[in-house]
Design a protein around this nucleic acid. Structure first.
Lengths: 137, 137
DNA sequence: AATTATTTGTCCGTATGTATC
DNA sequence: CGATACATACGGACAAATAAT
């Protein structure tokens, strides 16, 4: 798999696709490093900007996290706890705002579940920590 | 509201916060342009890098979309249709993979809802198009 | 139908700061 | 302490896509 600078899809999207595939195939397991910006730039013959944008895209999808000076690693996802959805409740999924993300201490790329119960009370859950359940009849 | 380059919060986060506020307040309605990278750079006296990072952040939150040469515009969100959650079903929220996003024609920053019914069949919904419902008892 | 203007995509260089080993 | 690697931020330059004319 190589990157084609003449393709109509942006180079940074191509690199993100490539790395995403390696993560989803298990070739890059949770905790594994995806390589430094420098090495990725050199290995694929692309610029620093493209590498950084690719990494930022993967971060925004919740697939990786980056820290100094370890670099970018495949994100380890927490176990999900089951939450029962009450009768008359409704739920929507969306990305948190910046403030919300910081206050809930969510990683980038983690959606939230907004649950509204029959009385109109709203509760927000981290999307990677819960699994909503409607119990069997 | 101005941007303070000496603040401890990064310039690009400040700009993203500023634009986000204008979007959420309705000052920038859906479809409106948030301005080109160049103009934002000049108006706020910051570099193009910072502008690009702010825009990328807002894109990852599903607030804007960008294209050439129209630039970045406030995303128009479709109306949500109600989908009933069957008894015994469970649902998780996550970000779509790149392929998934393209095949579902989702904008960046739009999560998906993965619904598994009692028989184990899985269905994936665009997170900005549906509202899951558990009917009142 | 062809051209132009606009805007983003991508490259590169430089610099400072910060966190970790 | 020094080496590493990313985060942030500025600057310039050209290529590519497409809306507008």
């Amino acid at each position: 798999m190589t990157i084609d600078p003449y393709s109509h899809t942006p180079v940074y999207v191509q690199l993100a696709d490539l790395i995403r595939e390696r993560i989803e195939s298990g070739q890059l397991p949770p905790g594994a490093s995806v390589g430094s910006e420098m090495s990725l730039s050199q290995e694929h013959g692309i610029g620093r900007d493209a590498v950084r944008m690719a990494i930022a895209l993967l971060r925004s999808e919740g697939l990786v996290t980056t820290s100094r000076p370890l670099g970018t690693r495949v994100r380890e996802t927490p176990p999900r706890r089951k939450v029962e959805l009450a009768p008359g409740a409704s739920v929507v999924a969306r990305m948190p705002s910046g403030k919300e993300r910081r206050s809930l201490q969510l990683d980038e790329g983690v959606p939230v579940l907004e649950v509204r119960d029959a009385e109109g009370n709203v509760e927000v859950f981290a999307g990677d920590e819960v699994e909503l359940i409607r119990p069997p009849a």
